[in-house]
Simulated assay, not measured.
Amino acid sequence: MANSLQKQLMKAGLADEKKARKAKQQKREDVNKAKRGEIEMEDPADRARRLREEKAEADRQREAQRKAEREKKEIAAQIKQMIEQSRLERNGEVAFQFVQDKKIKKAYVTGNQQKQLERGQIAIVALGESFELVPTVVAEKIRQRDEAAVLLLNERGTETVDEDDPYKDFPIPDDLMW
């Protein structure tokens, strides 16, 4: 049967004698290797099952990746919505400095906002490439979703003095600007 198909392919010009001989030789070598135990001839049903399992695993991985990306986008949208709903106006003349992406940035705030920032009553959060002032409660909710979105959040009254600190008798003045 194989020879008749081979002859038909050669007559049609789709194969030549050289390719036919090479295919026969390769088939004989595979059978001989299988007999010697060098390679295992795989049952077509096992091969089909293995291919289905590999495809299913690849599909699961792609779906997990899509789900992670979708969750990341949802979190970013939640953060943006929280910031936009609760941001405070910052049209002051007092420069308040903080660190964003290893660079010192300035936010011009009012004197009252500066004191609130120092006491930890309001916080600075990132919104895209810019930043906004939000209440501490909102900043904590944002921090739960994305730690990197909160640029500055001072802790409220949790200053503990280390007994070994040589400067414990010299408190930092509230009006110190750097």
Rank of each mutant, 00 (worst) to 15 (best):
Q6C: 06
L9I: 01
K11V: 06
L14E: 08
L14M: 09
K18I: 12
K19L: 15
R21N: 09
R21L: 13
Q26Y: 13
K27E: 09
K27Q: 13
R28G: 09
R28K: 10
D30I: 06
D30M: 06
V31C: 07
K35E: 11
R36K: 12
I39S: 02
M41K: 10
P44S: 15
A48L: 03
A48P: 01
E53V: 03
E54K: 15
K55L: 04
K55I: 03
E57W: 02
E57V: 08
R62C: 01
R66P: 01
K67F: 02
A68T: 02
I75S: 07
I75Y: 03
A77H: 10
A77M: 07
I79K: 05
I79Q: 05
M82K: 07
E84N: 15
V94L: 10
A95M: 07
A95Q: 07
A95W: 05
K102L: 13
K103D: 14
K106D: 10
N112R: 11
R119N: 15
A123L: 04
V125E: 07
E129K: 13
S130I: 05
L133H: 01
V137I: 03
V138N: 05
V138G: 00
E140K: 07
K141E: 11
K141W: 06
R143D: 12
E147P: 12
N154A: 13
N154G: 06
R156T: 07
R156M: 12
R156K: 15
G157S: 10
T158F: 06
D164P: 03
K168V: 13
F170H: 11
I172Q: 03
P173M: 12
D174C: 14
L176I: 11
